[in-house]
């Protein structure tokens, strides 16, 4: 298990290999469909993503006093952000994308060029990931997009995942997909 702590160091990120199990600690920002479209359309918020982590997640959060309690916060499917992610990686300097299902070749190439990895979180493990959020540091775009699509700023501890796309151009998904395709052709 490799430990990664915000701010994420480019050399450490580039040294990761597809298949490595990791635990992430520190600041993680959520952003999904509306967030990506917002940036692609030229929108701006006062958040510095450089050396940071972006999490494809639409959490369940409930108000608790002045702050928030995160009830469930697992990953959402990442492919929907394929059209936007290469540009976001290039312009933001983000080092880790967390999500599920992996992303396309253009995103993989952008990761290689800019020093970024894709971490597969476990789909459905919402309660466990919520428990790894120690504090909600803030939220942007809440009024505009609602709770599930807002950009939440989570302080996490021991957030578990597997590097599925590394900064060397390797994707675990591609490897498994081509192997399983070959096996399927054999048994059909």
């Amino acid at each position: 298990m490799k430990e990664l702590t915000y701010p994420f160091d480019e050399r450490q990120i580039r040294a990761l290999k597809a298949g490595d199990a990791v635990e992430i600690s520190g600041l993680v920002h959520t952003g999904r469909d509306k967030f990506h479209k917002f940036f692609a359309d030229g929108g701006k918020i006062a958040v510095d993503f450089r050396d940071g982590a972006l999490y494809h997640c639409g959490p369940v959060c409930v108000k608790a006093g002045d702050g928030w309690r995160v009830v469930s916060a697992g990953p959402t499917t990442s492919v929907r952000e394929n059209p936007y992610e290469p540009k976001f990686i290039a312009s933001s300097g983000v080092r880790i994308i967390i999500g599920k299902g992996g992303m396309d070749a253009a995103t993989l190439a952008a990761m290689k060029k800019h020093g970024c990895v894709y971490v597969q979180a476990v789909g459905g493990a919402g309660a466990l990931y919520a428990a790894s959020v120690k504090r909600v540091a803030g939220v942007d775009l809440f009024e505009e997009f609602g709770a599930a699509e807002a950009c939440w700023h989570f302080e996490v501890e021991g957030f578990r995942g597997v590097v599925a796309m590394d900064a060397h151009g390797n994707s675990l998904f591609d490897k498994v997909a081509s192997a399983s395709d070959a096996l399927l052709r054999e048994i059909l």
């Binding site: 639409g58 789909g123 493990a125 466990l128 428990a131």
Partner: peptide, 14 residues
């Protein structure tokens, strides 16, 4: 996750 969600009565998937 399954055990924690049951213990807390929280949605196991968001």
């Amino acid at each position: 996750n399954v055990r924690l969600a049951r213990k807390l009565g929280s949605p196991l998937c968001q």
